[in-house]
């Protein structure tokens, strides 16, 4: 039990240490799905927006948020789901984009395809499929180094 309510900046920092369960290279904050954190009396209210409506990671994410906050001593937590405005890859942080690329996943681009191969940086890339290993990714291939890679879809 904690006696003083931690300030919101501290809570944001705590959640920034929680990795995305499917793509652990980035945090939930990087992903842009935590929309708001507020104290409602003694209850901490966290507003979360889903990436894709059927993404199975959503439940794990909610569980991870709760666990992270309970580990810090917060006992009363409400998770609020917010659908609108719908999540967009524009909310991915700059740091998140850089981390994705370093991890081998091409970050989303407004043009609708990867800027270059995340491995050899060649811009000779082609789409294999619009769908990939998770709802948020597509499969692409580099025609120079021939490596297939994931592209984080722009939505």
């Amino acid at each position: 039990m904690i006696t003083d309510k931690p300030d919101l900046k501290t809570v944001w920092d705590w959640l920034d240490a929680v990795p995305d369960p499917e793509i652990p290279a980035i945090s939930l904050i990087d992903l842009g799905i935590i929309r708001d954190i507020q104290w409602q009396g003694d209850t901490l209210e966290v507003t979360v927006t889903p990436t894709y409506s059927g993404c199975p990671a959503t439940r794990i994410i909610n569980l991870d948020i709760e666990t992270a906050l309970r580990d810090r001593g917060i006992e009363s937590i409400t998770l609020k789901t917010q659908l609108s405005p719908a999540w967009t890859t524009d909310w991915l942080s700059e740091r998140g984009r850089a981390r994705l690329e370093a991890y081998g996943i091409a970050p989303p681009q407004p043009a609708g395809g990867p800027q270059h191969c995340p491995l050899c940086k060649s811009d000779q890339v082609e789409r294999i499929s619009q769908f990939g290993s998770t709802p948020c990714k597509a499969q692409w291939r580099c025609s120079d180094c021939l490596e297939p890679f994931d592209y984080f879809k722009c939505i």
């Binding site: 059927g54 294999i128 709802p135």
Partner: peptide, 16 residues
């Protein structure tokens, strides 16, 4: 690839 695409489409629809 088509298997994955179909499963993803189904997943979106079930989520909706």
């Amino acid at each position: 690839e088509e298997d994955i695409a179909l499963a993803n489409t189904a997943l979106d629809l079930i989520g909706q």
